[in-house]
Design a binder for these strands. Sequence first.
DNA 1: GTCTATATCTCGATAGAC
DNA 2: GTCTATCGAGATATAGAC
Lengths: 197, 197
Amino acid sequence: MDAPPAPRAPADGTRTRIVRAAAVLMQRQGYEATGIKRIAQDAGATLGSVYHFFPGGKKELAVEALRHGAQEFTDLLRTGLDSSDDPAEAVAECARLLARTLRDSDWTDGCPVAATALEFIGRSPAIQLASEEALGRWRELLAGKLGAAGISDEVARELACSVLSTLEGAELLCRVSASEEPLHIAGRHLARLIRSF
Amino acid sequence: MDAPPAPRAPADGTRTRIVRAAAVLMQRQGYEATGIKRIAQDAGATLGSVYHFFPGGKKELAVEALRHGAQEFTDLLRTGLDSSDDPAEAVAECARLLARTLRDSDWTDGCPVAATALEFIGRSPAIQLASEEALGRWRELLAGKLGAAGISDEVARELACSVLSTLEGAELLCRVSASEEPLHIAGRHLARLIRSF
DNA sequence: GTCTATATCTCGATAGAC
DNA sequence: GTCTATCGAGATATAGAC
């Protein structure tokens, strides 16, 4: 039997490395500020490879990068939500996880879709749809956790919406002010709100 | 006595028109997607005039545009907050005002700093500082309203932070999903949270 | 202060050898 | 699949007449 693959295999496919590099750059500075040449460079690939895998060009790559980043954010949320049976405590843990991730990355690794989504409101159906799907899945994930704790479906869906809104906004405030405070405060207030139902 | 000036004077200074046009475009699509030629065109000015008033170029204009947009957003918040003595009701009215403004503008006229701020986290001290100042003033405005209603200064400052986070995040969700729902839900939940103190 | 023309650069995208 | 060279367009910024 062969040795198991390394956790972060250097033999990751070129296509995967390109998508990952694009996702990171777009998360940090949005779509327009991110050049394809820089993406190729960070991915250790050439420009020709980028257009080989994404003949539709930058927009096509961006949609895939959004999906990739959204999946990683989903995993982070799931980790936080799985940390406790109490949904109020679980949401507070999500806020702590997000705050730690932001601080450890020098306030760069926030929501993977926010910056790009805001650049394309009403200007690109493909990008907007990918962003909407990401936000929708996070809302459903949160609603599921709240519903599993006995909150009615209707209330859970609305609460999930506000939890997501607050976490997204608090991330913006944290990044702009280079401080964990907004997310920590948000976590406490969201726990209080959830417990009031 | 001369006739009073028109409410929206066509004789607005060229400089003011440039700043306004820049603020609108940056609010809708961020900094990088906004070209100086387009700004000049929308302002009814020439490229030469832009560089005459802003010799520092696009970045210098952007800082001024952020300040201009922030002031307008402050006025909107103040209108909402003045609508009721009850801070819970006043915050809910702010959410309604933001939702209406978004819908009436086809989801383009949201927070005037969010898109640009996210493009420049850790990459431009001037832009980041202008964004931070805007968010800080909105937080103080909200904290003042809460404090005036008898909430302790410490609690009011923290509540104001979460109110702002939630409104910012709900605006993002509204714009991406082209729906007023997230802001309406946020208004109700924020009112409930405020009344719990 | 306003305007036109243009310099300079970088972008996304393509072509074609290997 | 990978690479280099390059195209054409559009960006910011500048120069200088008026």
